[in-house]
Structures are given as structure tokens and as C-alpha cells.
């Protein structure tokens, strides 16, 4: 309990720090909302030119976009700022984190929780719910469960990707924006039906890295559509489980990373 209160205090500190930059914070809040809005608008714009992309209608695509938006933004809100790890490693801020009686990852998360992304989360959920409505999903108890679990699974999966790509900084401080290829890149990948990608690219992102199970498969299950790429129908229901190995790998790599930092210094 004491530990939880400590994290709550860290979060409170962050909130009060933000309050001293009110104008900037307000602009950030809005522009962050704007970025998710624009992602969705992009989908609408592209569908102005065509009725189907990769064999899917606008409404169907929107379900994947919405599922991704809700899950990704939740992950980005909670652990997205772990991306700054490379800055902490370079500036030596990680040392001040290591002298406190708390665990490193939660400390980094709560020290700098990007509250400016809150509105964005609301919008992401709105798009997801709206997409569920316009698609006239044929509701069953299993589908209802899936509809709730899928965005959470997506969030956990993206969270794991954030931690994994951030851990890169323990070995490679100059990794720059490389992590973005998989975090933001992953989000872009899962925002569209994966049928649009070429075989090898889909093989890497969708199946080897697991992004295909984040939004595409659950969306198929919710829409009651067979996978044109040939995976069985139950795959959609099992898909959120992909976040379990993802978290396990992320946790392992993080641990090894911290150990590496301690044995090499900054």
C-alpha cells in the first residue's frame, strides 16, 4: 500500500508541475487530441477515393482504426513516455531514479505520465464505440467479452512494444527515433486491414512481430468475417492473448537492460 501511495504522490507531483505551464498544457491537450482525430480523418480522406481498401469498407476499416486508436492511446498514455529513457540514460537522470526506494519502471512511468494525452484517449474510445455501432455487430456474450478485452489487449501489447523499444537505449543511446518505427509504425500498421501489405512485409509485422493479432483479427471476429488470409475464425477470439508473451518478453528485456546499465554505467 505504501508503495502505491508513493506512486500516487509521484503522479500528483507531475500534475502540479503541469499546472505551472497552463497555456502550454492546454495547447498540448488539444493538439494531442488533434493528432488522433487526424489519424481517423486520414482514413476518411483515403476512402473518398475508393469504396474498398484491401477488400474492406470504410465502416469495417474504421473498426480496426478505432480499436487501434483506443488501445494505442491507452498504452501511450500509461507507458509512452518511457521513450525518454534514452534521454535519462544520457543525462544521468536514471541515477537519481536508482537511489530512490522504488522500482525503476513504475517510477519512470509515474514521474512523467503524459496527462496531456487524456482527451485523446476519450476520442479513441469514442471512435471504437462508434465503429462498433455503425457495423451492426451481431452481439453474443463471447463477442461482447471480446469487444471489451480486445482494446485492453491492444493497449497491453503496445505497452510492451513501448517498453521493448525504449530498452534499446540501455545498449544503444543513439538509437534516436528507431523505436518509433515499431510503436507509431505499429499503430499505423494496425490501423488498416493487413490485406493491403505485401506478403513479406505482412509476414514480418503481422505474424513475426504479432501486430496482425492486435486489431485485424479481433475486428474480423467482431464483424463475423472469414479471414481472407486464411487464419481460422477462432484466431480472432484468441488474438488478445498475444499480449501475454509480449509482456513477458518486454519484462525480461527490461530487466536485462537495467542490469546492463548497471554493469556499464552511463
Amino acid at each position: 500500500m505504501g508503495e502505491l501511495r508513493a506512486y500516487a504522490a509521484l503522479l500528483g507531483g507531475k500534475a502540479r508541475s503541469m499546472a505551472s505551464y497552463r497555456t502550454s498544457f492546454a495547447i498540448e491537450l488539444l493538439s494531442n487530441l488533434g493528432s488522433t482525430v487526424l489519424d481517423v480523418v486520414t482514413v476518411f480522406v483515403l476512402y473518398r477515393a475508393t469504396a474498398r481498401v484491401g477488400g474492406f469498407t470504410l465502416a469495417e476499416s474504421l473498426l480496426m482504426t478505432g480499436l487501434t486508436a483506443a488501445g494505442f492511446v491507452l498504452a501511450d498514455l500509461v507507458v509512452g513516455n518511457i521513450d525518454d529513457l534514452k534521454r535519462y540514460v544520457r543525462a544521468g537522470t536514471l541515477d537519481t531514479v536508482l537511489i530512490r526506494p522504488l522500482r525503476v519502471l513504475p517510477q519512470l512511468i509515474f514521474m512523467d505520465l503524459p496527462l496531456r494525452k487524456l482527451l485523446r484517449l476519450a476520442f479513441g474510445i469514442f471512435v471504437y464505440v462508434a465503429a462498433l455501432v455503425v457495423n451492426h455487430v451481431h452481439w453474443t456474450p463471447t463477442r461482447l467479452t471480446l469487444a471489451v478485452v480486445a482494446p485492453i489487449g491492444a493497449a497491453v501489447f503496445f505497452g510492451a512494444i513501448f517498453v521493448l523499444t525504449a530498452s534499446l537505449a540501455f545498449w544503444w543511446v543513439e538509437s534516436g527515433e528507431m523505436g518509433a518505427a515499431f510503436t507509431y509504425g505499429g499503430r499505423d500498421f494496425t490501423s488498416y486491414p493487413i490485406t493491403i501489405y505485401s506478403d513479406w512485409f505482412r509476414g514480418v509485422f503481422a505474424y513475426a512481430l504479432g501486430f496482425g493479432l492486435v486489431s485485424y483479427q479481433p475486428a474480423l471476429a467482431l464483424l463475423d468475417r472469414a479471414d481472407p488470409l486464411g487464419l481460422p475464425a477462432w484466431a480472432g477470439y484468441a488474438a488478445p492473448l498475444v499480449s501475454v508473451p509480449a509482456v513477458a518478453i518486454a519484462a525480461l528485456v527490461w530487466r536485462i537492460g537495467i542490469r546492463h546499465y548497471r554493469s556499464t554505467g552511463s
Binding site: G2, R5, A6, A8, A9, L10, G13, R100
Partner: peptide, 12 residues
């Protein structure tokens, strides 16, 4: 003062 208050919680 706020920093001190936060540290009080962190160190319980």
C-alpha cells in the same frame, strides 16, 4: 515544499 512533501510519500 512540494518536493519535500513528495519525498515524504516516496520514503514513507
Amino acid at each position: 515544499r512540494e518536493s519535500f512533501r513528495l519525498l515524504r510519500h516516496i520514503y514513507r
